[in-house]
Amino acid sequence: MAKLKISDLAKIKDRVHQDTSLREGGAQVKITVHMGTCGIASGARTILNTVMDALGETERTDIIVTTSGCAGLCSHEPMLTLERLGEEPIKYAKLDEAKARQIFMRHALEGEVQTDWALAKGTE
């Protein structure tokens, strides 16, 4: 990678927006698994693996799975945030494998929000 100049910062910003934004990148769903120490300690890796496995079983290429740090509410980990194109992101808390799998199958694929385990919608 070549060294950046100041004008490159804006270019990266635009490119990343295209890559990660649901609107322009062609992705329909973005799943963020929160992987701080607290998340990992309470099983976030299993959640991530479950989501990746479930994704692997589908043919979908328009679902992005990514990781991020602690969302702040350590006692409710593991958590994930699921955003479908044009809808508000939903944060799910206190997950386990089965819940994560169901959230993937029902919410990511079918669009049914799994109200029982949803913590909140929107962003901070």
Binding site: D19, G72, T81, A120, E124
Partner: peptide
Amino acid sequence: IPEMNDIPFFAHQELIALRNRGVLDAESID
């Protein structure tokens, strides 16, 4: 489902040092 800002835990917070928490991939400079 409540909005993030309807939940007291999040509503009373103001993020500066933690503004990117849970939003970006910590391992990606981009």
